[in-house]
Design a protein around this nucleic acid. Sequence first.
RNA 1: CGGGGCGUAGUGUAACGGCAGCACGAGACGUUUGGGACGUUUUAGUCCGAGUUCAAAUCUCGGCGCCCCGACCA
Length: 420
Amino acid sequence: MRQSQLFTKTRKDAPKGEVSKNADLLIRGGFIHKEMAGVYAYLPLGLRVVEKIKQIIREEMNNIGGQEIIMTALQRKELWEMTDRWDDANVDVWFKAMLKSGTEVGFGWSHEEPITDMMKHYLNSYRDLPIYVYQFQTKLRNELRAKSGIMRGREFVMKDMYSYTANTEMHEKFYAGVIDAYHRVFERIGLGDRTFLTFASGGSFTQFSHEFQTLTDVGEDTIYLHRTKKLAINQEVLTPEVMSQLGVSREDLEEVRAVEVGNIFNFGEVKSKQLGLFYRDEQGNEKPVILGSYGIGITRLMGTIVEILADEKGLVWPESIAPHKVHLIELSAKDDAARQTVKKAAEEYYAKLLARGIEVLYDDRADRSAGEKFADSDLIGIPWRVVVSEKTLAQKIIEVKKRAEKEARLSTFEHFIEEL
RNA sequence: CGGGGCGUAGUGUAACGGCAGCACGAGACGUUUGGGACGUUUUAGUCCGAGUUCAAAUCUCGGCGCCCCGACCA
């Protein structure tokens, strides 16, 4: 991508009244645009990050047998009445609207009900099980108060997966597999060492659900962390019984703030019975399907990474989800001839990087000072910065600097490209 | 939903009830060129609606919007 073609612009001033670091930097860097409180548009750079995160999750979900689908944002009232979750008294985040005919519809804040209902068309026999489906969906939630930039919005992207299994053993095996897959996701995204499996309330379905909590002070949850056992307990279920059940004592637990980036949940047979999802077993008996639900907040994850990794100069992306791998910067020169030489070399490097399949943002803007280009580069936070200038060309080298490191070093372009 | 703060050019900020100013951005011209360059010049604004007043960005009321704390949060 040529930066001269990128329609977004960086901003020097912080957006007014925006305290949240993720909103501040992502807006200044041109990654997102605020449409209204808690509702953000994703611009070219921001969308690339979202897609990178999705792709990592997609690979891991496919790896454990997930099949990707996409459900609808408009949902039927009757389905949610069957599980008693239509009434605003029970679910207070609904956006609702009416068809011209007067029929009420809801905007999806979750998709267990419609997916489970849909499964009645495809799932009849024990031979059909298990089934694992997932989607990346924009969820709409009428939050009383949006806050913390993209960490808690009214419209956000979530990966939700659902498992349909025949029995408890089959369910538990998959459930454990999801835990492993989630750990791999957070590892690949760069949050592995600070994201912990957390025991949380299972509601009326099971004793526990499991959350994946990433340690950060901007998190909304208080959890009790056992570092050596690599597990945590959500404040909401911290009781002496739970601690002894998990084999930990209060002294070993550290009270920390964290953000819930993932959540997995066992619905057991409850929802299948409510919605009428049954299968025939080998003996021809009708049995309810076991349902599990597994979420990861994509955009929340993006905000969490910003909060944790950004520094005073701007964003810092891990290579796995950066919008581009390399930020190639062409610096202007003293005279026309030198300028042409620098341009020619930079264009050549750009083409070579692209030919290698390396994603590169090329700052080819002619009328910008070096200082401005460097400041923009720091703000945007691409992992590798490569500078081409009259000075470097004189020595037949380039300057390479990693965003997360302080010192730049010199290298030949050929050596650099091999190293990537 | 309870409480607090705040709405002024595209962005960020000033202005005692009395001429709406500054910076950035954007446009033009010239000079610059390794950490947000310089000069000249152009551009563009008081959230909406009532009220008080000779006079309202400023005071009052209502609406809308934004931020924060709390509550809420499969």
